[in-house]
């Protein structure tokens, strides 16, 4: 997702595919020609596409999960222990003031809760959601339906011909340039 060829002012190029293998071929071809800085649209998460685009780089969301979980377990421990220490004489059922076995349950629950919430937060941060401000070129309902897309938001003008060629060659059913149409889903 590097943007080596992106110039300050670029041109939009969008190729719509009806077939998954054509899309994958297009991506591979673009990559082999050294053209980067495109976004792929897909109505479903296909691992082939993700792998093709991200080349196996894992999502950093996992760090969020880990940090969340570790925060949670500590919050769980501190919450239970510090509140108990405040009332040292109030020790129900013969248990010591800080009794780890019962507190482990709270710690576990806090781990899960914080892990999940941090994961959600991480996902939001990394995906850039909410995506209401996304470029209209990316808002193509066809690509939520049954089409795939490769979108250049700011492609180098001198690359235009090459990119268009690659897209067409790989089997895009439609290639537009500089287009900012708002698409409606067919048969809505």
């Amino acid at each position: 997702m590097s943007t080596a060829t992106t110039a300050p002012a670029g041109i939009r190029i969008k190729g719509i595919y009806a077939h998954l293998d054509c899309l994958l071929a297009g991506i591979e071809q673009l990559k082999s020609e050294g053209i980067r800085g495109f976004e792929v649209l897909s109505p479903l998460p296909r691992h082939e596409i993700i792998d093709a685009v991200y080349e196996g780089r894992p999502s950093p969301v996992r760090w969020w999960t880990m940090i969340g979980g570790m925060t949670g377990i500590n919050v769980g421990f501190l919450l239970t222990s510090l509140t108990a220490i405040q009332w040292p004489m109030i020790n129900p059922g013969g248990k010591p003031v800080v009794a780890l076995p019962p507190y482990a349950v709270i710690m576990f629950e806090c781990t899960i809760l914080f892990g999940a919430l941090f994961t959600a937060l991480g996902a939001i941060v990394h995906t850039g959601l909410p995506g209401w401000w996304l470029d209209s070129a990316l808002k193509d309902p066809r690509c939520n339906d049954d089409k795939f897309g490769i979108v250049f938001l700011r492609a180098n003008v001198q690359d235009e011909a090459r990119i268009t060629e690659v897209l067409r060659a790989s089997g895009a059913v439609e290639v537009t340039t500089g287009d900012d149409t708002i698409y409606e889903v067919p048969n809505a």
Binding site: E39, L41, S42, V61, G128, G131, L134, K139
Partner: peptide
């Protein structure tokens, strides 16, 4: 909108 960035994360 189903971009790969969204799908990935």
């Amino acid at each position: 909108h189903g971009t790969m960035r969204q799908w990935h994360h």
